[in-house]
Design a protein around this nucleic acid. Sequence first.
RNA 1: CGGGCCGGAGUAUGCCGGUAGUACACCUGCUUUGGGAGCAGGCAGACCGAGUUCAAUUCUCGGCGGCCCGACCA
Length: 411
Amino acid sequence: MRQSKLFTKTRREAPADEVAKNAQLLVRAGYIHKEMAGVYSYLPLGLRVLGKIENIIRKEMDTIGGQEIRMATLHPSENWKKTGGWDGVDVLFKIQSRTEKEYALGQSEEEIVTPIAQEFVSSYKDLPLAIYQIGQKYRDELRAKSGIMRGREFGMKDMYSFHETQEDFDRFYQIVKEAYFKIYTQCGLNAKSTEASGGNFSEKISYEFMVLTDAGEDDIVYCDACEFCANTEVAKVKEGDACPRCEKGKVQAARAVEAGNVFDLGQKYPKAFDFTYKDKEGKEQMPIVGCYGLGTTRLMGTVVEVFGDEKGIVWPESIAPFAIHLVSLGKDGDEICKTADALYTDLVKSGVEVLYDDRDARAGEKFAESDLLGIPKRIVVGKEAVETGIFEVVNRATGIVTKTQRAQLLS
RNA sequence: CGGGCCGGAGUAUGCCGGUAGUACACCUGCUUUGGGAGCAGGCAGACCGAGUUCAAUUCUCGGCGGCCCGACCA
């Protein structure tokens, strides 16, 4: 896309009402627009990143057999009253119509997905089943904070699985866990899975996926030798202790962002909706239900927090809004412009996602903006490129410049 | 929800009980063109309400909004 047509602009200064690095950089670069505390709109560049993240998640969920649907976010209050969530979930947004009919805004979708599964599942042959969606969530947080890390409206992938037995849920949980790690890895993040309390949501243990960063709001301990990792809420060891699992490693402490979670919901929801199926003996049984959350917008914020530097955002290639930032230093249709135009056309033909800075602006301004936007590779078209056919390619993360022949850029 | 700080051009800020200043952005013109250019001209602003005062953007109170700490967190 031509940057001259991109309606968003970058800002030189960080907004005064944002302290969080993710919000400062994303707002400055024009990826998001703040509507109010904890609520942001996603602009063209931001939406492209979010879409990339969603597609990575979608592919992994599809691979493990998840079936994507789109559930309503405006929920009938009756469903929430059936499960006790209407009065029991404090973050639930409740709204009222003109005729005083009550609704809830989806903060999680068990109340919706359970009746949907119930409509179609009547036999053990229909299980196991995993249903997911990617969409908006609404939570009445007492305090929204940290930019897009903790909002009142945010994007989330939520999957729900239905099983005949606890063993089958445990089996599937391991599969989801592997898929989650693949997702984080593709986004360039190192995640650990922990055991944490299930809050008031579930009596059973839950699992959290944590990405280590000082921007996080959770404290965790982990072993430097094995996979042991736990939230300090439930951990019985402290930093410096011997690892309780392998007894060889030492326990480390760190701040982390919760980048996903899993809850073993047992039969709470099937009980609330009287959801049964027939087993092999023809007996009525209730399925075991698991839910798996993964915040898409929070993941985007986490990446900005982890990789962003003093110049701006640094996207991993996998979720960058564009693969290449083509920066022309020409003006008014001169030779540099013609060279850049031709390269842009050929790159697009080759299927490369290019943001083409075709604006008539000074080099310094263009480079500063390019750094802020964080696109992984920048191709600079200046006099040298016109005269020699050799282009300067700058790696945003490392700053390393490589001189590249035109033909190689297209391969 | 408890505590703290804050609220002014599009953005970011300085000063101030009396004419609201600056930078950037934006518009016009000229110059400039490899790290957020220069000159000249122009457009554009005090969250809402009450109180104190001759006079309030400034002080006081309330509301609304924002951020931070804490609590909370499917």
